[in-house]
């Protein structure tokens, strides 16, 4: 049971990383990214291949995951600079599916739909499963804390102010003298890097990845986490991620209590629960559980 709880907490941490990464791109800078699962997959595959095929240490895999995801994020946002709203949503959704289809079909590289097994985890051989889960949990939660501090620092800085301004109106932000292109590409790359980090964490914790894990449904879960927690609010992103995991995992315990329910119906019930929660939050608190608030202003210098 402890092992299960630690694993669940680790998954919650990975979801929190995804929500924090998405919050930089969508919450702070207002760029919709339905290809989130694609960046998650990029990170997972980059780290898995670096450590298995190339045999490099896990730290190198994580670095490669973040760098590749950030690079692809920056490139994608550079290509889609003039798209916004629905159009950007479609292109990013296509990007996510593209990555998944490459993973499924480029068998020489990714082993296709069989996936990559035996991805090393930190000190997995020397620890009991319980100890390994505890270590993974600690590592992932540390990563969440670091990313949270970085994102929060960014949000409170003049940089974060520019991101919020161009989320509201990018033409007016340009007229204010801000290079919309630089801010959009940087913010997208940074957020994508965090999504890549989450992918690497997933790969090394579960030791097995396959294209099916990176379906668009995951993107929807994370958008739900962020929307429910509070778009633009980093604490809200973490809270929302914890909430989504609580619903997904909690429903496992509720299912057996409901009579005449087969497995498929149970899974469907979980989706219904998630959808219902989103509707409820949107009705009662459209700004999310923790609303975004402007940061405290700096005090004026005495002349």
């Amino acid at each position: 049971m402890e092992s299960y709880l630690l694993a669940t907490l680790t998954f919650a941490g990975i979801y929190a990383l995804l929500a924090l990464g998405l919050n930089v791109i969508w919450g702070m800078a207002g760029m919709i990214n339905l290809g989130m699962a694609g960046f998650f997959a990029l990170g997972a595959y980059a780290s898995a291949l670096t450590t298995t095929a190339l045999g490099l240490p896990i730290a190198a895999g994580v670095a490669a995951a973040m760098a590749l995801a950030a690079l692809c994020g920056g490139a994608l946002s550079r290509l889609t600079l003039n798209l916004r709203g629905d159009y950007l949503a479609i292109v990013t959704l296509g990007f996510g599916e593209l990555i998944r289809l490459i993973a499924a079909n480029e068998i020489w590289l990714t082993n296709g739909s069989d996936g990559i097994p035996g991805i090393p985890g930190p000190m997995r051989a020397d620890l009991t499963p319980l100890q390994f889960n505890a270590l993974s949990c600690a590592l992932v939660l540390t990563a969440v804390a670091v990313v949270w501090v970085v994102a929060e620092r960014l949000r409170r800085s003049p940089y974060g102010r520019v991101l919020r301004a161009l989320r509201d109106d990018d033409v007016a932000a340009a007229v204010a003298g801000k290079s919309v292109r630089r801010f959009k590409v940087q913010a997208f790359a940074l957020g994508a890097g965090v999504l890549g980090l989450a992918g690497a964490a997933y790969a090394h914790f579960t030791s097995y990845i396959a294209p099916d894990i990176f379906r668009p449904l995951l993107t929807i879960y994370i958008f739900l986490a962020l929307t429910a927690g509070g778009t633009g609010n980093n604490a809200g992103a973490v809270l929302g991620a914890a909430l989504v995991i609580a619903i997904l995992e909690g429903s496992r315990f509720v299912e057996p209590m409901i009579p005449h329910l087969n497995g498929a119906q149970g899974a469907a019930l979980r989706e219904i629960l998630i959808g219902g929660t989103l509707i409820l939050v949107m009705r009662l608190r459209p700004q999310g559980i923790l609303a975004e608030r402007p940061p405290e202003p700096e005090r004026a210098a005495q002349p």
Binding site: P158, Y159, R161, V162, R164, A173, G177, P294
Partner: peptide, 25 residues
């Protein structure tokens, strides 16, 4: 900018703010 306060809207237009660089921020 609906999500900026009046002060923030003014500060946004301020020139030469090094905190608008990613690393500096």
């Amino acid at each position: 900018f609906p999500s900026l306060t009046v002060l923030e809207s003014l500060l946004l237009h301020g020139d030469r703010q090094p905190g608008e660089g990613l690393g500096a921020a």
